[in-house]
Amino acid sequence: MSEKKIIRVVLAKPGLDGHDRGAKVIARALRDAGMEVIYTGLRQTPEQIVTTVEQEDADVLMLSILSGAHNYLFPRIMELLKERGITDILVLGGGIIPDEDIPGLKQIGIKEIFGPGTELKTIIDCIHSNLAQANKV
């Protein structure tokens, strides 16, 4: 059997908010689930985030935001990914994001938005199943 590829995840905090409890808990959970997690730290611009994704050759980009600026920042990040030709990446979002904003965010290519109370297992399963579909693992 060939060696299983280790999933590489960039976990980013776009925007100015400092709420990183959720991001850090998820980082630990994904690490414990055998993934390689790169946490960007706070206050990352869309440009910085996309550059990290490029440099780290990430399979997954997770965006955590609780400030309410998602409708500006998420589309900007998706745009930049496209511009730089990064199309085969799974993008997930999380934080305080009103239900009514979710369809719009999914339409621009964010696969799933996780709100407060989401189980870590749900996130891990989501990554596995999406990457399996894309034949990445």
Partner: peptide, 22 residues
């Protein structure tokens, strides 16, 4: 709001999308 808390005016590039939010 966050730009104020981090010492940016509302017209700073990093303030876009964050002005008056929290």
């Amino acid at each position: 709001d966050l730009p104020t808390q981090i010492g940016y005016d509302s017209d700073h590039p990093l303030s876009v999308g964050e002005v008056g939010k929290v």
